[in-house]
């Protein structure tokens, strides 16, 4: 909040400060955190984003068609998140591990694993059970933690699903878990014969996590558990 308050009596807010405020600042908005000028849009791109957004909104007021508004936001998000070609990546690999399905997908058991931060009421992975808004200022803490894999039974009461994730706007997931946890779509795919079986237990964790702890400890244990549960294949959803 400091940035906005400082401007009340202080010097005019800079464009840089304005754009920064959308990423965990005074105007935090996880849908638009890509506007931070350290990202690909930079300051000029951020200013142009707003100019064009207003222009397209004006068009849409007349036409009722908001498709271009959406496309503008998606395009800006792509530009914002795409690193510069010369940026040194934190993680990069030359090879790709490859497992082949032992039998056709239509005869295989598939599990869903979502990085969207879902869990079942009463099974909060964090002992202090923070709310979404309490979790957002703790993003750095999440990024240092080992992720916890929440188990979500296939037949769980959908109203018992909860979501908390300090890295993305969860309103869509709260309205419909299938936006990042498409369990109901998978059940339909099983009914239509595309998949042999959906696992009795499916999974979610908070993707904003320590990559080192995920790689070294958590994910190998998850793999072992999935094998013990007879899982042949997994659909992984980023959020």
């Amino acid at each position: 909040m400091a940035e906005a308050e400082a401007t009340k009596d202080g010097p005019p807010e800079s464009l840089e400060g304005f754009l920064q405020s959308f990423a965990y600042g005074a105007r935090n908005d996880l849908l638009f955190k890509f506007l931070h000028p350290r990202n690909g849009l930079k300051e000029q791109g951020g200013a142009e984003f707003f100019r064009r957004l207003l222009e397209l909104l004006g068009e849409a007021f007349d036409t009722g068609d908001y498709a271009e508004v959406m496309e503008h936001c998606v395009s800006a998000q792509i530009q914002g998140y795409t690193p510069a070609p010369n940026a040194k990546p934190l993680w990069a690999y030359d090879d790709t591990p490859w497992a082949t399905l032992a039998r056709p997908l239509s005869e295989s058991r598939l599990a869903l694993i979502s990085a969207g931060g879902l869990f079942v009421t009463g099974d909060d992975p964090l002992p202090d059970e923070p709310s979404q808004s309490q979790s957002i200022p703790r993003i750095d803490e999440f990024l240092r933690m080992e992720p916890t894999l929440s188990e979500i039974p296939l037949n769980v009461d959908r109203n018992a699903l909860r979501v908390r994730h300090p890295g993305y706007d969860i309103r869509g997931t709260e309205r419909d878990h299938n936006v990042v946890f498409p369990i109901d779509r998978l059940l339909e795919a099983k009914r239509s014969g595309l998949v042999g079986e959906i696992a009795e237990t499916n999974y979610s964790f908070v993707g904003a996590t320590s990559q080192l702890r995920l790689k070294k400890h958590a994910a190998p244990a998850w793999a072992q558990m999935l094998i013990e549960r007879g899982v042949d294949a997994a659909l992984l959803v980023g959020a």
Partner: peptide, 16 residues
Amino acid sequence: SVGHTARILEEAGIAT
């Protein structure tokens, strides 16, 4: 996170 998890599941023989 999803990419790292996929890599580790594949190494264990689970197709992702």
